[in-house]
């Protein structure tokens, strides 16, 4: 999945990435907007910056995110 700035997303599952921390479990089910995708190399493995409604802005692995229509 290539995430673009401004796209609406949902944190739909726990990530298997080692950057996922326990407190991030609270993000599951939250919707948000991609505010800073991987700005250099379009790497599917890069962490992307996401602003989640009511939860603040965080850098998350891409495997926990899916695009909303």
């Amino acid at each position: 999945m290539v995430f673009r700035r401004g796209q609406k997303i949902e944190v739909f599952q726990r990530s298997s990435d080692d950057m996922w921390e326990d407190y991030m479990d609270r993000f599951i089910g939250r919707h948000g907007i991609i505010t800073d995708p991987d700005t250099s190399i379009n790497d599917p493995d890069a962490l992307v910056e996401v602003s989640l409604e009511g939860m603040g802005t965080h850098r998350l692995p891409q495997d926990c995110l899916r695009l909303l229509d």
Binding site: E49, S51, G56
Partner: peptide, 18 residues
């Protein structure tokens, strides 16, 4: 974010510096 008067706005929540 339950007490209405004290909940930050979406822009503030989005700011990494808060």
């Amino acid at each position: 974010e339950v007490c209405d008067r004290l909940a930050p706005a979406p822009c503030q929540m989005a700011c990494p510096a808060g």
